[in-house]
Every structure is written in structure tokens, then in C-alpha cells.
């Protein structure tokens, strides 16, 4: 379980706080979506919840982060990395810059952990299979498309076999097929007991994989609840978040006088 309590955070050299008294709890096996307008503090929350801010980024944090009962404050960065990993939006900055092939790129994390070669290879193969990257293993990681690079970046995180995964806009460069692949991989990961936090603009993906959605605005959590309830909330549009297609469709049908129970049933059966 990842537990963030009373987090108020300020970047180094800035007078104003970017997060205000944020509480976040990720239970094992849970996938939580994080949405909000631009500049709301999603990326900052990802940094704070992963322990990188303030430990590596600097700045000042009031409040505590606890990972499976261990306070994050006393952990070295490599100890932190074995408990929680975070993926950033720009796949170019995710690359290690020292691997000659995609296989090596994905293997670097487990290798850094000092694992035996057989274990490193097993984890790397597993991560490759999760994101169906078999056709890319021999490629130069510097010469991938944006979408491919993003998938490789996620695979490199999965190879760490983390207990907690935080992803900041993991599908920004992906087409619908790639996005779907990421969704499946995240669900499989949660199935192993990992907890996930995903900041995303693509609410359709969140609608598909998340059990809970958190809406953040101006550095404060303004909504937090089950996925369907949050995405059906009328305040969402005012916050600049586009609800998923499912929610928009059901709202339109109900507004035109269709029985809400019938709409719910029809959408459930269409979603399979």
C-alpha cells in the first residue's frame, strides 16, 4: 500500500505551493486514475507520490509518504526504486542512453539491482511479452518512433517488478492499439498485486482500467471516487476534463429521455 498524507509541496526557489494538503492511498492491486486541467499539479503529484520530490528534485514537502509501512523519507534512491517506479511523459528522457538494443535497454533496471543474469533475462522477457515488443528487441533504442519508445520505456519500468507504479501520461504518443496494449499490461500488473497511479488525458483508457478516479485542480483533490461516479459527475466538464465516450453517450441518451436503467444495461452489454 502506498500512502501519502497531508502532502503540501513547493518547488525549490518558488514561494508558492503547488500541492495543498493532498491525501492519496493506493491499495495493493488497485489502479487509480489521475485527471485534471493543465497545470493542476498532476505531474507534481506523480513526483511526490514516487518519493522523487523532494528526495531528488528538491523543494520542500510537508506531509509523509509511506510505502508498505516504511516511511519513504529515510530511503536511498535505489531502495525507493525497488518499491515504487515512476514513468515520465517524454519517452526520450526515459532512455538510459547506454544500451545498443531494446533488449539491453529493458534489462538495465534489473541488472542495476545486481540480480543474477538468469533472473535479469527472465524479467526482461516477461516485460517484453507484456507489451508485445518481441519484434523490436534487436533495434537501436535511439531509433524508435515516439510510440515504440513509450512502450519500451514502460517495459523498462515493468522489468523492475515494482510494487507501486506511477505513470505520467504514459500513452501521450500512442495510437489506439498501443494505448489498448498499455491498458492490458497495466491490468496484468495490478493482477500481481501491484498498485498503480496513472495521470492521463485519455479518459477512455482510465474508464477501461481504473477502479477509482481522482480529480485534481489547483493542487487540491476535488473529486475522488469510483470510476463511473466520477466520470458521470457534471462538475467534470467545468474542470476541463473530457469524460470518456461511455459517460458522454449515456448522458446524451438519458437527456433525450431514454430510461437510465436501459442505457446502463445496453452500455454494459456493448462493453462485453
Amino acid at each position: 500500500m502506498l500512502l501519502l498524507e497531508g502532502a503540501t509541496y513547493r518547488y525549490a526557489g518558488y514561494a508558492t505551493e503547488v500541492l495543498h494538503d493532498v491525501d492519496l492511498r493506493l491499495d495493493d492491486g488497485e489502479i487509480v486514475g489521475l485527471v485534471g486541467p493543465n497545470e493542476a499539479g498532476k505531474s507534481t503529484l506523480c513526483l511526490v507520490a514516487s518519493g522523487l520530490a523532494p528526495a531528488s528534485v528538491g523543494g520542500s514537502l510537508k506531509g509523509t509518504l509511506t510505502l508498505d509501512g516504511t516511511p519513504a523519507a529515510g530511503l536511498e534512491t535505489h531502495e525507493l526504486a525497488q518499491r515504487v517506479v515512476v514513468g515520465f511523459q517524454n519517452p526520450n528522457t526515459q532512455r538510459s542512453g547506454i544500451a545498443a538494443t531494446v533488449f539491453e535497454e529493458i534489462a538495465i533496471g534489473p541488472m542495476n539491482l545486481g540480480l543474477p543474469v538468469t533472473e535479469t533475462v527472465a524479467r526482461t522477457r516477461e516485460a517484453i511479452a507484456r507489451l508485445r515488443l518481441e519484434h523490436l528487441v534487436e533495434r537501436d533504442p535511439q531509433r524508435l518512433s515516439g510510440g515504440q519508445a513509450q512502450l519500451v520505456g514502460i517495459a523498462a519500468l515493468l522489468a523492475m517488478r515494482p510494487r507501486h507504479v506511477i505513470l505520467d501520461e504514459p500513452t501521450a504518443q500512442l495510437d489506439p492499439a498501443g494505448t489498448h496494449l498499455v491498458g492490458e499490461a497495466l491490468r496484468a500488473l495490478a493482477g500481481t498485486g501491484a498498485s498503480l497511479l496513472i495521470a492521463e488525458h485519455k479518459t477512455d483508457l482510465l474508464d477501461e482500467v481504473c477502479g477509482r478516479i481522482i480529480v485534481i485542480d489547483g493542487g487540491r483533490i476535488v473529486l475522488d471516487g469510483p470510476t463511473a461516479a466520477v466520470f458521470d459527475d457534471p462538475r467534470l466538464a467545468e474542470l476541463g476534463v473530457e469524460p470518456p465516450a461511455r459517460a458522454r453517450l449515456s448522458r446524451a441518451l438519458v437527456e433525450r429521455g431514454v430510461d437510465p436503467a436501459v442505457v446502463g444495461q445496453a452500455i454494459a452489454s456493448a462493453a462485453g
Binding site: 531528488s56 535505489h78 528522457t93 532512455r95 541488472m111 542495476n112 533475462v121 523492475m160
Partner: peptide
């Protein structure tokens, strides 16, 4: 900065030897 954070996430700072592939 983002690059160095991404490296930390993958345990680059861990002391001790790596088992090279």
C-alpha cells in the same frame, strides 16, 4: 533533470557490482 530522475528510478545509484548480460 528528467533524464537523471529516470535513471534513478531504474536503480542506477545502487552501489555494488552489476551482473552484466
Amino acid at each position: 533533470e528528467e533524464r537523471s530522475l529516470a535513471l534513478e528510478v531504474r536503480a542506477f545509484g545502487k552501489p555494488g557490482r552489476r551482473q552484466l548480460l
